[in-house]
């Protein structure tokens, strides 16, 4: 464990807590893409298949359970909770995310570490996580002004993977056989997709103005 990875995990945890705070505090999920939440739930379920078979550390197991439970509870909340589901921007959240799932599944069948069930789902989860934010970014552009908690949620979600890239660079130079090209490339694509969001987020922070994404 290195500081970059720990900071990345904590940033990821913060993004989940900010989203939970927004939903429970405001009893609203306006501005949040249900499709991105569903994709993330799928990412965690596909990636943590080894939750019960490989014990790595208490930290690792606890964090996996937290990410799986939180993503499933957010999806459940946005679909079932009577108050929350009413505020869902159903008509704006129209990204056809099933294509993302199909594309990533195909990609994982073609490019993976080893042709085993767990490895293919691991690669699938990395490709899917790289594009999972797309429905959310499209929704932000369509919904005009973004409330603070939603903006912070997306910011921390993007920042966590950027920290993981530093972690991979660090591990590349400190561990001899560290070849994780699939996660490095997926992580770079994922962080790049946040590029313009980070730019407008920085501008809004600098000018102390509301976050506005150009349509």
């Amino acid at each position: 464990m290195n500081i970059f990875r720990f900071a990345g995990d904590m940033t990821h945890l913060i993004s989940v807590l900010v989203l939970l705070l927004k939903i429970y505090a405001t009893k609203s999920c306006s501005g949040i893409s249900l499709k991105t939440q569903e994709l993330y739930a799928l990412v965690f379920l596909a990636r943590y298949l080894d939750l019960f078979t490989d014990f790595i550390s208490v930290y690792n197991t606890v964090m996996k359970i937290v990410f799986i439970m939180s993503s499933l509870s957010i999806v459940w909340c946005m679909r079932m909770h009577p108050m929350v589901r009413r505020s869902y921007d159903k008509e704006l959240d129209t990204f056809r995310h099933y294509f993302l799932i199909a594309g990533c599944l195909l990609g994982a069948l073609l490019v993976h570490e080893k042709f085993t069930f767990q490895e293919i789902f691991w690669a699938f989860s990395l490709y899917l996580e790289a594009v999972a934010i797309l429905p959310q970014l499209v929704l932000l552009q369509r919904s005009g002004n973004v409330d603070n908690l939603t903006g912070q949620y997306v910011f921390f979600l993007g920042a966590y993977r950027a920290l993981y890239i530093l972690n991979w660079i660090y591990r590349y130079f400190t561990e001899k056989h560290f070849g994780r090209w699939i996660s490095c490339i997926s992580g770079l694509v994922q962080t790049a997709l946040y590029g313009d969001f980070f730019y407008y987020y920085f501008i809004s922070w600098k000018n102390n103005a509301k976050l506005q994404l150009p349509a």
Partner: peptide
């Protein structure tokens, strides 16, 4: 070994 070397990440 390389197997578990990188599966320790979340």
């Amino acid at each position: 070994d390389s197997e578990s070397a990188y599966k320790d990440e979340l």
